[in-house]
């Protein structure tokens, strides 16, 4: 059995080969070598190894790579289902809007 690889055919990773310019930015950030360059073209080589971290999509300058990113954490799914907020637990499923709010939020450093 290959390890580490998780469930078959669930990852939401997609590559629009018409949009892709082959710049390879996605290849550098993927921690599981899901994407490869083949004859100058980027393609998805091992979708089952994708953990949906979202690094490839974030770093694609032309939005050719898309994925519904999130943390693969059962406790986060439970926390979110129970309506706990991120302030009460470090681990919740955040929507892309919340993530965007975090990354553009103030950089004030209360301590």
């Amino acid at each position: 059995m290959r390890f580490p690889v998780y469930l078959h055919n669930v990852a939401t990773l997609a590559l629009d080969e018409d949009k892709c310019t082959g710049c390879g930015a996605c290849l550098d950030v993927c921690p599981h070598a899901v994407l490869v360059r083949h004859n100058g073209r980027v393609r998805i080589d091992d979708r089952d190894a994708c953990m949906e971290c979202g690094a490839c999509a974030t770093n694609c300058p032309v939005q050719a790579v898309t994925v519904q990113s999130g943390v693969g954490c059962a406790m986060a799914v439970i926390n979110t289902a129970l309506g706990r907020s991120s302030s009460s637990c470090c681990c919740v499923i955040e929507t892309s809007e919340q993530k965007a709010a975090n990354s553009s939020g103030s950089t004030a450093t209360p301590r």
Binding site: V5, V10, A11, G72
Partner: peptide, 20 residues
């Protein structure tokens, strides 16, 4: 064991939801 998905370095959210 299911909760160890959060510590692992290769589980996806789609996969965890399907498993759960």
């Amino acid at each position: 064991a299911m909760n160890f998905t959060g510590a692992s370095t290769f589980t996806s959210l789609s996969g965890v939801k399907k498993e759960m």
